[in-house]
């Protein structure tokens, strides 16, 4: 049974929520979520690559010879990653510096290649676009949530956009931030606990 476009879009938001349900592409999830802003920025960059590569793969799906399809997909994805890299460098330089090595690494993000191979190479343009956007937005929201979780516990504050922010310590003066939540170990533990929460809700 073919799913409708809306269903293709919404499945990425819960049913196949990338980092939690599919447990794929964990490196950027762990690496950039030291704050909500970074997480969202990375998510938007990945969404762009995901949607564009899905569209192009879907367009070319009858032309690409099946034997060399993976190589073709990787080249398509790499081209869009270069586009994103230069766009960020030009228009969002501070974010570009913070995300660092993780932007070129979108190329090897399993989610992007996974969607190209499992979905876009078999479906039409409209549903592939919806799929790419859905999975991408799900990924962005997950990164943002984990970033917010780590930032609140680790720094006791939440930066929303630039100077706009919310300081937890002014409301609860006795709150002591856990410094380690914004460091490496906190990434693993934070993601593990969120995965646990999602599993508990899902059951």
């Amino acid at each position: 049974m073919a799913k409708s476009i809306v269903q293709e879009f919404t499945k990425g938001l819960w049913e196949e929520l990338p980092p939690f349900r599919l447990v794929l592409g964990l490196c950027p999830v762990l690496g950039v979520t030291t704050s909500m802003e970074n997480g969202l920025g990375m998510g938007v960059a990945t969404t762009f690559v995901l949607a564009c590569s899905n569209i192009l793969v879907s367009l070319l799906r009858n032309i690409i010879p099946p034997k060399v399809r993976i190589a073709c997909f990787i080249i398509i994805i790499a081209s869009f990653v270069i586009v994103v890299e230069h766009l960020l460098q030009a228009y969002a330089y501070p974010l570009f510096l913070k995300l660092g090595v993780f932007i070129p690494l979108i190329v090897v993000n399993c989610i992007v290649l996974g969607r190209a191979e499992a979905f876009a190479s078999k479906n039409g343009i409209a549903s592939s676009t919806a799929d790419g956007m859905g999975i991408g937005i799900g990924f962005t929201l997950s990164l943002g949530a984990l970033g917010a979780f780590r930032e609140i516990l680790g720094k006791g504050s939440l930066t929303i956009w630039g100077d706009l922010g919310y300081n937890l310590t002014s409301v609860f003066p006795s709150f002591q931030p856990f410094e380690f939540m914004v460091q490496a170990p906190g990434a693993f533990i934070g993601l593990g606990l969120m995965l646990c929460a999602i599993n508990a809700i899902g059951d």
Partner: peptide
Amino acid sequence: PKPLQDTSIGLVTAGMIALAFY
């Protein structure tokens, strides 16, 4: 516990090892 099984507990464990490397 059931919700923590497999990957979830794996990640928390990895966090502990990361703490040691920290």
